Simulated scan of single mutants.
Amino acid sequence: MNILILCTGNSCRSQMAHGFMQSFDKKLNVYSAGIKASGKINPMAVEVMHKAGVDISHHQSRNVSEYLHSNWDYVITVCGGANESCPSFLGNVANRLHIGFDDPSEAIGSDEFIYSEFIRVRDEIKEQFYQLYLQIQSEIL
């Protein structure tokens, strides 16, 4: 099963979704990319994922152009920007989904508030992607 998760910068939400999806089943081939890849992973995303037991510190921010010629079972966008400008894939895409989340890196306020936004979005991503994982497993069986 090949899964590509897209976002605008590939530094936060898509990386968290990638980490969770891979943690649910090591046999899944999960990748993430950005329409305008930032080239780095948000350190706060790495920290909150670590606290959830998932290590994404080794992930890299990649541009979606690296994956345009591949075949995908699922291509999932996780933010409005990627959903609106999702590229045309030349490979076979069996299922396109959009599961949108707020961008915690755009939160404004105290350090505590910003951290709480990362935790909130992380937990939403975990829940939504676990439900998707269960759905995918039920379709396979």
Rank of each mutant, 00 (worst) to 15 (best):
T8P: 00
S85L: 07
I119N: 09
S11C: 12
L90T: 07
N63F: 07
S61P: 11
H69N: 14
T77A: 11
C79Q: 01
N71W: 06
P87R: 10
S57K: 10
H59M: 03
P43F: 05
P87Q: 08
Y31S: 13
Q60F: 03
L97G: 03
L141T: 13
L132I: 04
N2A: 02
V46S: 09
F118M: 03
N2M: 00
E66G: 02
S23V: 01
L97F: 02
N63D: 15
S85H: 15
I41S: 09
I125D: 07
S65L: 12
G19E: 09
H98K: 12
V93E: 03
V46E: 14
S14Y: 07
D123G: 08
D111P: 13
E127S: 13
Q131G: 00
I3Y: 08
C12R: 01
H69D: 14
I3L: 13
L141C: 10
G80V: 04
C79E: 12
R122H: 05
I125V: 12
V30Y: 04
H50L: 14
S110Y: 05
K40I: 09
D102T: 07
N2Q: 13
F20E: 04
A107D: 11
K126G: 00
S65H: 15
A45E: 01
E106N: 10
Y115W: 04
A82D: 04
S116Q: 14
H69C: 05
R13H: 08
